[in-house]
Design a binder for these strands. Structure first.
Length: 173
DNA sequence: GGACGTTTCTATG
DNA sequence: CATAGAAACGTCC
């Protein structure tokens, strides 16, 4: 666990069968979730109870851990912690909002997302917004595929995208 | 202004 | 089916 004064965020790593993810919390909720190896994680970091961690964050974290483990197992999380996606731009937040409505095992194309946010021609920008998603897995950017059913891209690494989809029972070309 | 990206469509062989 | 080129547009530098 590590607290940074800057934006008053607290980072706590989450040990999973797939490695250690890193969750970062702000006053309003979960701010980001990093894949194992995506960020520098300090020595030993599971949920080590520390007095400095605010109560809300502890509660949110418990929810995050449960949600992440379920999601990694290809199941729909029962609950999510409050997500603070305020850091994104207008378009990004719209995209992320739509992504959250894609259920387990479902997929959409970048074009469908573009239409869903009322900007039919921003297809490419939608891809950019997916790539900028600060909370992968829980905000399912991996469920967005290219229109031809192909895998498309994934900033967290295509292996992760394939793995997550496969666990949800989604077949990709 | 210029480059780049988790895109998509059309044309062509 | 595969490849090439172009159109499109938000972001970042």
């Amino acid at each position: 666990m590590k607290t940074s004064e800057r934006n008053q965020t607290t980072s706590i790593s989450i040990a999973t069968p797939d490695g250690r993810f890193l969750a970062r919390y702000g006053r309003k909720g979960l701010v980001s979730l990093d894949f194992p190896g995506a960020a520098k994680i300090g020595p030993r970091g599971s949920l080590s109870a520390r007095q400095r961690v605010p109560g809300d964050i502890r509660r949110w974290h418990r929810v995050t851990v449960a949600a992440l483990k379920q999601a990694l197992a290809g199941r729909q999380p029962q609950a999510l912690p409050p997500l603070d996606l305020s850091a994104g731009t207008e378009l990004q937040r719209r995209v992320w909002r739509v992504l959250r409505k894609i259920g387990r095992g479902q997929t959409r194309s970048y074009g469908e997302i573009a239409r869903a946010i009322g900007r039919p021609k921003t297809v490419r920008a939608v891809g950019g917004a997916c790539g900028a998603n600060p909370i992968p897995v829980l905000v399912p950017c991996h469920r967005v595929l290219a229109i031809n059913g192909k895998i498309g891209g994934f900033s967290g690494g295509l292996d992760w995208k394939r793995t997550l989809l496969k666990r949800e029972g989604v077949r990709v070309q």
